[in-house]
Amino acid sequence: MKTKAMEDAAAIYRTPGELLGSAFDYIAGTGTYTFQNKVYASLVGVQHIVEARSGAADLRPSIEVRREKQRGAIPQPGDIVTAKIAKVQARMASADIVCVGQRAVKEKFTGTVRQQDVRATEIDKVDMHASFRPGDIIRAEVLSLGDARAYYLSTAKNELGVVSAMSVAGATMVPISWQEMQCPLTNQTEPRKVAKVE
């Protein structure tokens, strides 16, 4: 039985530029790159060889170099992010991305939710002011790197949308349906695109 200490002792440390193997034997995983049919390391870290999933088209194992130090989070397409709405306009809302997945970001990124990306149905009849208000916290998915100014975000899925919002009276609202939230102080409902909380 391999103890953690034995595993650590057997770990192979790689630095950028080290030759890991031939591209015919391995798929280049994270922390590596291929050049002239050879796989080289591009990061400093521990080498890992991950066997191909059974049934996968390519049966070569993939070779990766994993860093020990964590880097600040950066949004990538497909990530679920937490953002705070900064501005709501007729056809889009802009938000400051605060967390990527479970990790807070080291510096602020700007995201845009366009009218057609707010929900999945009746996308041309979306009223932006009935979906978001400035100050709302939303959970969204990163669609793409967007334009020069901001990432494109989407709240079109059921579990995406407003997670937390303050009412005009100043209390944190409770969600009642996917379209409305209610203020506990005044019992007034306000329209939002609400995220379905499990």
Binding site: V98, K106, E107, K108
Partner: peptide, 8 residues
């Protein structure tokens, strides 16, 4: 720095 949230 991102700036601290109200809770922080």
């Amino acid at each position: 720095m991102v700036g601290l949230s109200a809770a922080e």
